[in-house]
Design a protein around this nucleic acid. Structure first.
Lengths: 322, 322
DNA sequence: CTGAAAGCGCTTACAG
DNA sequence: CTGAAAGCGCTTACAG
């Protein structure tokens, strides 16, 4: 591979001048031209590794997400990407599969590759961001915020959204409303449960703790959780499901049990991905996934540019779909 | 950030010895211990940028895909990831959004960052892989193969799959079967069309070229294409749709037109993502997305390890779901 | 097994 | 505006 030295020799200038041409600093138009010609001739691609080593910073942003197969996170990724690319950064996606050790491995990669910054939807409440924070790396939490981390964050209003979704069921006349929540160690789940409770209380309905099932935010988890609820002594007449994928699983479990909404009501936190029908009996609150990503990217870009103000949290609204 | 020199000083050895400890070459157990203690004490993370510059190769694999919001490609990504991680590589995802200039930018990044190899589902038949091939970078094409590139490839049998899907419609009694294909410059689309033709011919059905609609492999494209077919003078009684997302769009268009399968039959190349019902009238051929990814990764890893045999193409089967 | 030293390909403060 | 030179943090052939 051609280097800056090869280009310099062919163009009859010094390597410093070649470097300056590729970094937009002051060179004569004449030199700019000969350098560009020489570079084209040699098929020169600057070695970013060397540049990064020298500058101690690359123009790559890492987006760390827990589940690449969840369309919510890929939509969020699109939001990050659109914003980052417009500012000249490349985005690489790192999928942790909800595994804190994989997550920690990717954070080390981000440090070790001198990436410009990290946007992270943490695998757990207990995710440890200190490898990043200790080194003053720009970080923005999105969707989920690890406990106790004083960092910028962009989230949705999980309590209000959970409450709104549950209220849709109340308004449609359901009275015994269960909840399929996410993992106990994920902040978003805790808050969505709080929203469910608040809605029940506001409606004067009793909250039966045996109607709360925890699952894993995945399709199969939602399926199994709904089966457990169906086997309950006093079966619920409706279920608030705390994310999109578990709602898919819950609906499949209902179908396989021969039950069709609205016989049992379902309210989903997050729109059903790629749905082709509007099943009666299924209510949703819709999440601004792409906007979460673009808002997070904008904040990260400001931090990279040197912004030093206090960390802030941006909360976006979940919108009930009627 | 602590460097190898800081660790060496604290441990009372040379930087070379520290390097050897982290690269698994011969050191005394005693030295190994003091170096590891010193590294832990200093919170040392090796600088991969420097390592890559020196070795001219990193342990990162790039996976370049055209649409991160298509579950088919994210499933494929999971396959790549599982295989690559088991071999000690990290995978970063690059989303081209079907744009050849974005794709070309990412290929330059892969070269310029000295990534170990690239797995690519090309944006177009005309995608130019020469930046990679000219530099002997390990490359495997997956799902789609750019024209004329003599490289390893893992694909599905698009002709047989298209034929099988169309045949499912024939067997269910449909006689005027349209096709919603992908972009004209994408190889997979051309082949799936050929499968559609072959099935019609085998069934002795006439092929009406006005029943062939091209779209963009996206939800909205499938929606619009189905609307065009419905407006056709002699409306088709069934449609073979050449990918999963366009099938979602087509089904939504049918729903919005108040038509419910099996009034119009639909056969989808690729399972409907996250479907919650098994709509009668919708047939599918199912694609081994994850296996495509893992097979591609296995071949890439062999190439990285130095395999020099002739490029080969692995073709996996699309399986009709009855 | 271990260390001194060179070199991977850039960028930039400094001097001119 | 331009060039010579140092240095970013590693790895490894070489000599001991």
């Amino acid at each position: 591979m051609a280097t800056i030295y090869d280009v310099a020799r062919l163009a009859g200038v010094s390597p410093a001048t070649v470097s300056r041409v590729f970094n937009g600093t002051t060179v004569t138009p004449q030199n700019e031209r000969v350098v560009k010609e020489a570079a084209a001739e040699l098929d020169f691609v600057p070695n970013r590794t060397a540049r990064t080593l020298r500058l101690r910073s690359s123009d790559i942003i890492a987006l760390v997400i827990p589940d690449i197969e969840n369309p919510y996170f890929t939509a969020l990724a699109r939001g990050v990407e659109d914003e980052a690319r417009a500012a000249g950064y490349s985005v690489v996606l790192c999928n942790t599969d909800d595994d804190m050790s994989r997550e920690s491995g990717y954070l080390d990669v981000a440090v070790s590759e001198h990436m410009a910054g990290v946007i992270i939807a943490a695998a757990s409440d207990r995710s440890d961001l200190s490898p990043l924070l200790d080194r003053n790396k720009a970080v923005v939490a999105v969707d989920r915020v690890p406990r106790g981390a004083a960092i910028d964050a962009v989230t949705v209003d999980n309590v209000a959204g959970g409450r709104a979704a549950t209220t849709l069921l109340v308004e449609r006349g359901y009275r015994r409303i269960a909840c399929i929540a996410g993992p106990a160690d994920v902040e978003t789940s805790t808050r969505r449960i709080a929203g469910w409770s608040a809605a029940l209380e506001a409606a004067g309905l009793p909250e039966d703790p045996t109607l709360l099932e925890h699952a894993d935010y995945r399709v199969d988890g939602g399926y199994a959780a709904l089966e457990r609820l169906l086997a309950h002594d006093e079966r619920p007449d409706a279920v608030f499901v705390a994310n999109n994928l578990m709602s898919v699983g819950a609906l499949r479990a209902l179908r396989d049990a021969g039950i069709h909404p609205p016989a049992v009501g379902i309210a989903s936190f997050g729109a059903l991905p790629f749905s082709t029908s509007a099943p009666t009996g299924v209510s949703t609150v819709s999440l601004p996934a792409r906007e979460l990503g673009s808002a997070a990217a904008r904040i990260l870009l400001e931090r990279i540019a040197g912004d030093r103000q206090e960390p802030r949290t941006v909360v976006l609204e979940a919108v009930p779909v009627v």
